[in-house]
Write a protein that binds this DNA or RNA. Structure first.
Lengths: 354, 354
DNA sequence: CTGAAAGCGCTTACAG
DNA sequence: CTGAAAGCGCTTACAG
């Protein structure tokens, strides 16, 4: 009676339950439920009547009640790094698209430092079917929460982040990326290399440093001699300005390198401008290689040579990894996939100046 | 007993209910519930015991069961346009951050064309406390679903999209933005203007066109005479290339404009490059103004003058609008807020060439 | 602190 | 097709 009252006194109130809705249509609750769940054996007229009322009233059955009965939520929790770089955004968008086409929706939460455990807990309380992580968290942030997922065999996939023991992971082969860049630059005659933003100091850069070393050694060059870094003299507050500052520093350096590898495209473009401001020319005096192959590579003149992360391949691997766990027995060993990068050559690189 | 079996035979299975959890801790279900809900009158030892077990087992109480009891879900549904431009991403990130700090989480869904009604329905079935829309949908996409929200008084806020009757809205004053740009350029001596990507053809650009007209008329200039567009001769597949193509076209035009207003920063930067390729100089021969004031404005040389959307102000208005509806009686009239843009002058604009 | 009970809204199996 | 009933996991008011 409370219900009838509220429905009558305010005709604009939304119907809140199948009971109210069934009364509205003049059918039994169970019949309505059967129509909503597309069960067979119903008269066409009944189905039609329910669907019309559904459109008219805008009634949405309470998902929590259905989920309480233990069905799959068909929902994925997505943790993204709170600093949304273009590659992260792209992965997020592609992941959501791919999962939606498979009938899953995504709850996206940004992980600010210190929040990962509560975010994971929130996802678990919503009984998501799986959890995806996007982006590299250098504070070692999500490890604790992830350990729990691994321990209990909760479906999950970690993109970009590496070094998480026993987690299902898909990562770009950053070491290989650096080797490819070195191969290419050595082929152009370069023998002295500058790193911009790629520092030993950062744990996340370990793989890239390794790749640079390995690439150089294969060409008989000694990393300790031919690689220079000036990062330590410049704070990295904002990427573009940081790249420009490091480049101006390099420009003034006697015997400066002729080829530069930057941590990302923004730093690389900042560096290009820093070099030009200092009277050097790109690529005639110095070559610059970015990382990520973002749209922004086309903004400077000349356009920026960069390394492509192959984001489509990464996301599609991640989706496979997730789906292979949902509703299936736990895999015996963690699933690990590595993605091969691609070097995209544009105008910012050329033969070494003699 | 089924429960005990599963718990015992597989010690790694996650506990699924407060009943299982209470048995695990050796307390009554109601006691556990009281601890979880921080109710008063519990012994410190009991609280401590429950919290330790919570950490050890990683138990997460089923949120659907709690939500079924009709409490606020403290969740906001966020609809974003599926094409994630930097301003949209920024709004999304700021909105989520602001809502989280107020105890709400966000479910983000990208609206592909034709999906808006089902996405809204999904949000409603999850009993979200409100729904936010981010981005301009030129197909008139979300109108139908929004009409339902308006009709039933469901808390909502629409950012960017305008022309939705009776919806609670916060929009940038795009007309004012164009007036500001015209004022500034006329002050620099410009008398002939080119529009790049701002076309009458697009409904969403109506306000900008109005602003350009109004600005010119105030300076005694006739829009029909002093404004030129070449958009119709170039398909807009990709913004940067589109801007470059239109600029090359303008460069070859006798009596070409000296100042250009672009739809967005990417188009503007493409245009700068198109002009330079055609032998013109920015800003000595032509001035270019972008829109959005994205980070990318700093990438070209000279840097791009642009119009800032004041995204922080927009989002904070949107949050106010949302919170003012949640748990409160329906406002008598739709809430409409307008945000004042800011012109950010950089190197791409200068005095008109004589 | 315990324990039994009610009720949130749904689905489903059952008898009619 | 109807109608009554059970059960999902939680919270809360109640008697002990």
């Amino acid at each position: 009676m409370k219900r009838e009252l509220s429905t009558k006194s305010n005709p604009k109130a939304r119907l809140r339950s199948t009971a109210e809705f069934a009364r509205h249509v003049g059918l039994a609750r169970s019949t309505v439920s059967r129509v909503l769940n597309r069960q067979p054996g119903l008269r066409a007229g009944t189905i039609e009547k329910v669907e019309r009322a559904l459109r008219e009233t805008g009634f949405a059955p309470n998902a929590h009640a259905r989920l309480l009965r233990g069905e799959h939520s068909h929902t994925i929790g997505v943790c993204v790094k709170d600093f949304l770089t273009p590659p992260i955004v792209r992965k997020m968008a592609l992941l959501q698209q791919a999962m939606r086409s498979r009938g899953f929706s995504c709850i996206i939460e940004m992980l600010e430092p210190g929040t990962s455990e509560s975010v994971i807990q929130h996802f678990l309380s919503l009984r998501v079917d799986g959890i995806a992580f996007i982006g590299y968290y250098d504070q070692g942030e999500p490890e604790v929460g992830l350990a729990g997922l691994v321990h209990f065999g909760t479906p999950h996939v970690v993109m970009d982040q590496f070094g998480v023991p026993d987690a299902n992971t898909v990562t770009l082969d950053r070491s290989r990326a650096m080797e490819m860049a070195i191969d290419y630059l050595v082929g152009l005659g370069h023998r002295r290399f500058g790193l911009i933003g790629i520092s030993q100091r950062m744990l996340g850069e370990f793989d890239r440093i390794t790749g640079v070393r390995r690439g150089l050694q294969r060409h008989g060059l000694d990393p300790a001699v031919v690689v220079t870094s000036r990062d330590q003299y410049h704070p990295r507050i904002e990427d573009y300005a940081f790249g420009a500052a490091v480049a101006r520093d390099f420009a003034a350096l006697p015997g400066r390198p002729t080829a530069y590898l930057a941590l990302n495209d923004d730093i690389a473009i900042g560096a290009m401008h820093g070099f030009v401001e200092s009277g050097l020319q790109v690529p005639d005096s110095v070559s610059v290689v970015g990382f990520n192959n973002q749209d922004v590579c086309r903004m400077p003149n000349p356009e920026l040579t960069s390394i492509d992360q192959q984001i489509e391949a990464t996301v599609s691997s991640a989706v496979d990894i997730l789906l292979s766990q949902i509703g299936k027995p736990r895999p015996a060993a963690p699933i690990i996939r590595t993605i091969e990068p691609v070097l995209v050559v544009r105008g910012s690189t050329g033969p070494a100046a003699r």
